[in-house]
């Protein structure tokens, strides 16, 4: 069977990107009220695992769109307005774990789960790093505030959520793949 390119974007990817974005929006909407005290523009979001998982399962483009569009939709639903750089940061959080989508041995395999966790953390650090830095030119904050009030709260909570929930979703997806033969 011909192996699909990591960056291909066929019908399945169109549908999964839309599902990932909608799911992320819904879960974000339900948890957006959980603002982290004294952290600017940051809420506690267990849903961050969704773009990360969709990236790992379906590739970087699906992961990116799930995070980018999902964050826009979640903010539109909640009424937060539009925060382009945070949307882009969320997109990166899905894109970077998606880079290992083609090289995973399986979704239950311990080594694959560890690789996915590693790339998830990398995506979170880069994605939230970019979004937090944007506060320097959007809100006029200095580097210390950006790190203390934006980056650390966002990156740490997202990393904890991803580290706990990503393996659970991967193992569950492995069962779905095995059962359906897809």
């Amino acid at each position: 069977m011909e192996k699909k390119s990591l960056w291909s974007f066929g019908t399945r990817e169109v549908v999964y990107a839309a599902i990932g974005a909608a799911l992320y929006a819904v879960v974000s909407y339900l948890t957006n009220f959980l603002q982290i005290p004294s952290a600017g523009n940051v809420s506690f979001r267990p849903g961050v695992v969704i773009p990360i998982f969709f990236g790992v399962a379906f590739g970087p483009l699906v992961g990116f769109i799930s995070g980018f569009l999902g964050n826009i939709l979640g903010d539109l639903l909640s009424g937060y307005g539009f925060w382009f750089w945070w949307d882009l940061g969320n997109g990166l959080m899905g894109l970077i774990p998606g880079l290992i989508a083609g090289s995973l041995a399986g979704f239950r395999d311990g080594k694959s789960i560890l690789s996915a966790e590693f790339f998830a953390i990398l995506g979170i650090v880069l994605g939230m790093g970019l979004a937090s830095l944007s506060e320097m030119w959007v809100s006029g904050a200095d580097m210390a505030t950006v790190i203390g009030a934006n980056f650390i709260p966002a990156a740490v909570t997202n990393a904890v959520n991803a580290l706990i929930l990503l393996p659970i979703l991967m193992v569950a997806y492995d069962a779905v793949v095995a059962r359906s033969g897809r």
């Binding site: 839309a18 599902i19 819904v26 939709l73």
Partner: peptide
């Protein structure tokens, strides 16, 4: 079309 589909999926998934 991803944008179109995502908007349609939101109420269903919720």
């Amino acid at each position: 079309y991803v944008v179109e589909l995502a908007f349609r999926f939101v109420p269903t998934l919720a």
